[in-house]
Write a protein that binds this DNA or RNA. Structure first.
Lengths: 340, 340
DNA sequence: GTGAAAGCGCTAACAG
DNA sequence: CTGTTAGCGCTTTCAC
């Protein structure tokens, strides 16, 4: 057969109405066992597949959710997406996964595509470039539920799944101080990324509590490229007052830092201690292994779906936005251990 | 407004027919400039978004392609998917990305979901568990174009984008032999994975050319888990005749091998040399850095889209399946260098 | 230039 | 238990 089999084809063949076929297929009551069997058999024989477009159109429900992340190449995002997918499937939803590649333009078009009736709600982590949130408020005005995770914005009221970045950074810096560091640098992300800024606050709080004055020369904003981190570490180590500890905003960048220190023959952790974020598997593989702040990735994904479905199923009821803040967990390894 | 704006709403407001609105929106000729302007203005004001479900249904075209990969957590897949996405967008298609998490069940349901009218074609890399290909031949019978990459099967005739795994492994082993190895082991993937089996053939060819007899004790099938690789390396090193070179089917497993050798205080590359596959970024970061076979990831993605769209646009013309086999590139690093 | 009508594949009353 | 009818939002003839 040239075209996809439809219920019409089955109805014609069996000399019944399409309504009857539809009922049989959906296992509704009020249908004669024999008719039902005939329909099911023929459907199987012809490999009938219901057209979800048609069903979605008439029900105005797609049972599909959208996910927008900056880059699936990051361990953090691919792992959270995996958890989101598990939870979505468990709840009877399918997933449309898209990436922005950190581009605001791509975020716009992704949002637009998804919102043209394809999904019932969207989970998003903002692109690095995103400053303007009009595309998202427009979404909300049209009644499409939205949940943020990781990279959010204060300018929008919505449900969010976050970790306590401020506190995590505070604890990481405190750990460095406890390990004997006196002068701690912060290799941050781009100025526009909320996560990075929240961590900066925790970094500053820990310093101030320890009576250490903030030194702007020790806060460096990176572009998230490993090579840049290497370069910037070289710069840091040229300061007259070199740091003896570095808090790094991500494991990827920490790798770049390690490369630079190796080049400079500065030993880790003896001369410089390092703590970074994400706790990617790579942390335990490199030498020295990297101390890193672990995020509850599965829980983030699970909660994001929970908050989203919550909104979808209570649509129109105008329920308040829920913001969940999760705890992190510092995993200490060689890069910040106290060998001396 | 409570519901999404439709062309009907706009038509009513403007006292024109839905056909006129539809024409204006799609920039068709035969429409008065004033009418058109009025429609466009109102559409913008009301933030009208066309319902793609409806459009797709009537046109029986979704302009969407499906991608099914085992796991986006692998660098290989996330990078190829990124390339696929670029190419798809450039060609005017959207992408539906799904993962099987290496489960045959999930592959079935993913195929089924996508084939219920959502996509015009599918790009797939098989799950580790997939032995039976009925779900895919059924797809083809229903006229849905299919393109394989990386993990394929000989049991199905379809367009494919592959790399020359046999030759790559052959060259990698030859490199090990040239570097002085006399006894080379192969840490393979699961027996069911085509890629791994193809590499085994190249491994054997290189050995036989060098006049070395195959030793079954040196071919180990792993489950793709790093920890297992560590364990299996320990086993290998307990043989009375230890290997002095190991070809490893993936970088992840090579990390596991390195861990074992470190534990055993066997130095790399002095006592054992290692070459693996994929050339993940991690290869150049660990110490010793890992020699690895690089695949042309961008080209794989680009070609997969090309082959798929080729089939879609010539549907019904019964064009023959195209199989593209790409070359790889061995990147030599410390793990196989000739220090002595 | 514009409108009326049919239809994409399916579901959902409502009769019978 | 089954069929008829209307309609989801949009496109596409075919008239006027």
């Amino acid at each position: 057969m040239r075209h996809q089999v439809t219920i019409k084809d089955i109805a014609k063949q069996l000399n019944v109405s399409v309504a009857t076929v539809s009922r049989a297929l959906r296992d509704l009551p009020d249908i004669h066992p024999d008719t039902k069997k005939a329909v099911l058999d023929l459907a199987a024989e012809w490999d009938y597949q219901p057209n979800v477009l048609a069903t979605s159109l008439v029900k105005s429900k797609t049972k599909t959710l959208g996910v927008i992340v900056p880059d699936l190449g990051y361990y953090f995002f691919s792992t959270v997406v995996k958890a989101i997918e598990e939870a979505a499937i468990a709840a009877g939803y399918s997933l449309l996964i898209t990436q922005t590649q950190e581009s605001y333009e791509r975020e716009l078009t992704n949002i637009q595509n998804l919102s043209r009736g394809q999904v019932e709600g969207i989970i998003i982590s903002l692109s690095r470039e995103t400053m303007n949130l009009d595309h998202l408020t427009r979404l909300q005005r049209r009644g499409i539920p939205l949940v943020f995770f990781d990279r959010d914005s204060d300018e929008i009221v919505a449900s969010k799944v976050m970790v306590d970045n401020e506190q995590s950074a505070y604890e990481a810096v405190k750990h460095l101080l406890d390990s004997g560091c006196k002068r701690i640098a912060f290799l941050a992300g781009p100025k526009s990324v909320s996560v990075s800024n929240q961590r900066r606050l925790g970094y500053l709080r820990a310093l101030s509590e320890a009576g250490i004055e903030e030194d702007p020369a020790l806060i460096i904003h990176s572009d998230y490229f490993q090579d840049t981190a290497t370069q910037q570490t070289h710069d840091l180590m040229q300061l007259s007052q070199k740091p003896d500890g570095i808090l790094v905003v991500s494991d990827r960048l920490a790798l770049g830092v390690l490369v630079a220190l190796r080049e400079l023959k500065i030993s880790v952790p003896e001369q410089v201690k390092i703590v970074s974020f994400n706790n990617e598997p790579i942390c335990s593989v490199v030498s020295p292994s990297i101390s890193s702040v672990a995020q509850p990735l599965e829980e983030i994904g699970r909660l994001a779906i929970e908050l989203l479905i919550d909104q979808i199923e209570h649509k129109g009821e105008d329920i308040p936005a829920r913001v969940e803040v999760l705890k992190t967990n510092l995993v200490v390894r060689e890069s910040s251990s106290n060998k001396g």
